[in-house]
Structure formats: C-alpha cells, structure tokens
Design a protein around this nucleic acid. Structure first.
Length: 514
RNA sequence: GGCCCGUUCGUCUAUCGGUUAGGACACCGGGUUUUCAUCCCGGAAAGAGGGGUUCGAUUCCCCUACGGGCUGCCA
C-alpha cells in the first residue's frame, strides 16, 4: 500500500502571488487530486521584516478564484496545524535545540559587519565563493570556538546569536529529483546555513524541513530556484534522523520572461502589457490588474499555466481543471524553463469562453459590462453574449468592443466613415430607412432579403452600402453578422440610429466645408 | 567567479536508437464573411557545435558554446 499523497503549496506573504507561484500551486493541486491525496496551504511567514499586510488574504482569495481548493490551511485548519509558520515558532526552536544537542548545529555570534569582513577578506585572498563553512568557522565567534561558559554567558546576557547548521566537509550529497533525476553536490560547496535567525525565527530551510516532516508531506513540489538549497535540506533530514521518511523532491522549471532572459517578474507585466498576478493587487500608488480583472476564466488561466512546463503526451490542448487532474503526472513535467507567452494565454482563454455555457458567461460578463455601461438586464446580455462570444478572447472584450449594445453614445469611426461615404450615400440610407420601416417582422433574414433585393434592383454593390449601415448601427466596421446585429438592436433602435447617422453626416459635411 | 540545472520550428512542445522529426500558438497564402473574429484548407519553419558509443543517433556518454537558477540572519 502506497503512502497517501500529501503535498503543500507554501508561499510567503511578502506580496501578491506571482504567476509562477500560481503554477506551482496548480501542479501541487493537480498532483494531489490525481492521486486522491491531500493539498495543503502553508503560510511561510518567517520573515517578519518583509511581511506585507493583506498578502495572506490575497493568496487565499487567489487560490479560491482559481479553484485550487486546499484540504488543510490556515483559514480552515486540519490535523497538522497550525498552518502559519509564525505560529509554530516554539516548535522550530525545540528542533533546533535537538540539532545543537546532537552536534549538528551550533550558536554563532558574528555580527553582520563581521560576516561582511570575513567575506571580503576571503575574496581578497582569492577564494572563489566566500562562505561560512568548515574552513572558516574555526576563525569565527561561535560555540565551536568559544568556551562553553562564555557561550552560556553571552546567551544569558542577551547577545544576539543565530543557530547554524554544521556541514561536515568531504561528503557527497545526492538525491533523486523526480523531474531531473539524480543531482549530486559536494558538501564542501555548501555553507553553514543559518537555521534560526537573531530574531528567534527559523529560516526557510529549518521551518520547511520540520514542517514537511511533521505534516507528512510526501512530495515537495516547488520551483527550480530551490534546487541549490536542497542538499541543505537533505542534510537536515539526515541530522534529524528522518532520512528514511524524506519526501520526494520535484523541482519545477521556471517561467521565463517573454525574452527568455531570466525569470518572469512584476516588471515584465508592466512592460509587456499583461498581468502577472491572478487577481488585482494594490501597492501604494500602484495598481496591478490581475487575470481576473482583465477577463480571464480561471480554467483558461489554469489550462495555459498547466501547459507551461507540462503536456499530456497526446495532442489534446483544451482541458478543464478536472481533466487536467485526470491527465497530470510529474513524469511529464518539462525540465527546462518555458517562456511566458501572453498570446497563447489569450488563445486558451478564448477556447474556454467558446466552450462555456451562455448562462455562466452572462453571470461573468455582467460586472464588466455594468462597470463600463451601467446596469444591464441578464436576458438582454444573454442575447448579446450569444452573438459576441466567438470573437471574445476575454470577458472584458465584449464590454469594450460592443458598447453599442448597451449605450447610445458609442463612438463612430470617422476615418472609416470618410472613406466609405459617397455622393449617393445619403439617398441610400434614406431608402434603407424606408425598407426598415416597411419590414413587419424585424428578423435578420427578412431584413437582409429586403435590403438585398433593393440593392440588386438599384444596382448597388454590397461593399458600398453595407459598411455604411454597419457604421450607422454600431459605429465600427468590426462586429458580428450585420443582420443579426440589426435584429438584436430591434427596429426602433435601428431606425433611430439611421436617422441620427444622417444628421451626423450632415454635420460632418458642413463642418468640413468651413 | 564558484556550484547546480538546462539546450528540437520565432514560442510551447511530441519523439522514451531506425519517423517524410508530429501538434499547437504566432506568421504567410487561400476559402467562407459587407467587416473584424470564428471556422476550413494550404505554406514556410527545428534537433547549438564538436567528439565518441552503435549497423544506425534528436534520442546514450564526454567536451565546448550558450542560456537559466543559486551564491543573504529572503523566501
């Protein structure tokens, strides 16, 4: 019997969830669901200095919007809590003490200035990578060099200290990463990592290992940026005597900038004009739109993100979250980083919009429309959505591109109008007004038939008159089928707009003659 | 600089020693459409370089080049 899968997403509340973090959460979620396992949210708030108010709530709301429901977490509890590291502080200190007692860790009293001196001194002597390790710890001020009485006295007196991991030189540390295979490090290249900081909080390394062990985590699925500190974690598992129950490590490839140079950052979104956060984030004067605000469906984002570093092995592309969970496997996770491509994200979203039931789209599109154009009836919106859906990449597109369905003061593309206008145009429009007035049941097909037969008799080419009608009715040359649009607008409105169009063009002509 | 990881069309990727190297996005051309979008058809487009191993390498190994990550009392 295999051990039940337990995975965790462990963000630190130092700001909004970044798109790379979202993908990590997604992979954890998919893996847990695929195996009928448990998905845990753990808040890694051990850095008190970088804590950002609201960040934890932001993370929780984001996961909720994305549909990545966790089974255990700070806001819902669970059998392995608390799920906020700041609330587990005492626990870490006890485990750190255990390490000290067993000689795997020690106290260090060096000040930041002394550390800086040590590093520059080593650099001057030509040391490649200056670090606090076996070769220098004998020259530093720590419980390995100081007499125990003095150490005790300093601690008693409240002299700030940290606890460091004692890395033994000359060892080989290897582990089998699920996506990368065997990775080997020499302990000589590792430093004596700080385990407990001077403020009494653990560092990521200690807290992470203690929690993963205590919470029964079976697979540590995280970004590649953690690969280099994994040997330290392995050492910790060994030092605690947990080596046999060590979780499997899964280091995910990074999401790169569109240029491919470096990992995606907040700045890239600003520069490239796309969101890098799942939902909106406010930071002082700055406001960052999220995927939710620009009109993404959560399944559109999830689908896109899932494919950034993973594929099902066949040629299917469009997946619901349930289908993703069904198909997901760590074996098919890519090894190298993937560039972020907003075009592709939009395409995935468009595909999901095309597959969504109208009723759902109406509910989702409504706030976008109302935000821009005021209250709107769902019945009416449903008809607009039905007509517009296949040209929507985002939920917001409809509100922006089809304002003429909601207001009368939609803009008219004057550049196109000037190009399309001709001497006969006025007369044509008047003819169309007469036809529209005459059509008793105002339906797309009937209207089209009437107008077209008149066009045929009068010998008018479609390309000369139809764009004008479209401009009159919608103000733009882009949009759904002209006759369907007219039917939806209704006879009254079509007539009103044709008359207004004539007045408008008269004004334009007089204006241009002056 | 050091340590670690990586390298197939412009981009995301399939291929688990033998394929005309497949798909998708983007792009180009054509069809449908009054238009834009959708949709359909077609096109151009790839194994970083060099050594091995092998009857045979995109696939396995090594080197080089290039790219990325880490190098904090941040995660």
């Amino acid at each position: 019997m295999e051990k039940k899968v337990r995975v965790r997403f462990a963000p630190s509340p130092t700001g909004p969830l970044h798109i790379g973090g979202v993908r990590t959460a997604l992979y954890n979620y998919l893996f847990a669901r695929h195996h009928g396992g448990v998905f845990i949210l753990r808040i890694e708030d051990t850095d008190q200095k970088r804590l950002v108010p609201g960040a934890e709530e932001y993370i929780i709301e984001s996961l909720y919007w994305l549909g990545l429901q966790y089974d255990e977490g700070p806001d819902m509890g669970g059998d392995y809590g608390p799920y906020r590291q700041s609330e587990r502080r005492q626990l870490y200190l006890e485990y750190a003490q255990q390490l000290i007692d067993r000689g795997h860790a020690y106290y260090a009293f060096d000040t930041p200035e002394e550390l800086e001196q040590m590093r520059t001194a080593l650099k001057e002597r030509g040391v490649q990578s200056p670090k606090y390790d076996a070769s220098v710890r004998k020259q530093m001020r720590n419980s390995l060099t100081l007499p125990s009485s003095e150490v005790e006295a300093m601690i008693e007196a409240g002299v700030p200290y940290v606890v460091r991991l004692k890395v033994m030189p000359g060892e080989e540390i290897a582990f089998d990463d699920v996506v990368r295979g065997r990775v080997v490090f020499q302990s000589d290249s590792l430093d004596d990592k700080v385990l407990v900081k001077a403020d009494g909080m653990p560092t990521y390394h200690l807290a992470n290992v203690v929690d993963d062990h205590l919470m029964g985590i079976t697979h540590v699925i995280r970004g590649e940026e953690w690969l280099s500190s994994t040997p330290h974690h392995v050492l910790l598992y060994r030092s605690f005597g947990w080596a046999d129950a060590m979780p499997l490590f899964v280091h995910l490839p990074l999401i790169l900038k569109p240029s491919g140079k470096g990992k995606l950052s907040k700045r890239d979104g600003v520069v490239g004009g796309f969101p890098v956060f799942p939902i909106a984030w406010r930071e002082g004067e700055s406001y960052y739109e999220g995927y939710r605000e620009v009109g993404f469906l959560p399944e559109g984002l999830n689908n896109f993100l899932a494919f950034l570093g993973w594929n099902p092995g066949d040629e299917r592309e469009i997946f619901t979250i349930e289908e993703l969970a069904e198909a997901f496997s760590l074996e098919r996770v890519q090894v190298s980083g993937a560039r972020f491509d907003y075009h592709k994200a939009l395409w995935f979203n468009q595909q999901h919009i095309a597959r969504s039931p109208i009723e759902r789209l109406v509910k989702l599109v409504k706030p976008f429309v109302e935000d821009r154009h005021g209250p709107v009836e769902e019945e009416w919106l449903a008809r607009v959505v039905d007509l517009m859906r296949e040209r929507m990449q985002t939920l917001r597109d409809l509100a922006v591109q089809a304002s003429y369905f909601f207001v009368e003061d939609y803009p008219i593309d004057e550049i196109e109008l000037r190009k399309r206008w001709s001497a006969e145009a006025r007369d044509w429009i008047e003819q169309v007004i007469r036809i529209v007035e005459r059509v008793e049941s105002f339906e797309a097909e009937k209207l089209a038939a009437e107008v077209k037969s008149w066009m045929r008799e009068a010998g008018i080419k479609a390309g000369r008159i139809l764009p004008l009608l479209r401009l009159a009715w919608t103000g733009t040359l882009k949009g759904p089928d002209l006759w369907a649009t007219a039917e939806l607008l209704g006879k009254e409105r079509c007539l009103k707009r044709l008359h207004r169009f004539l007045r408008f063009t008269v004004e334009r002509q007089t204006a241009s003659k002056d």
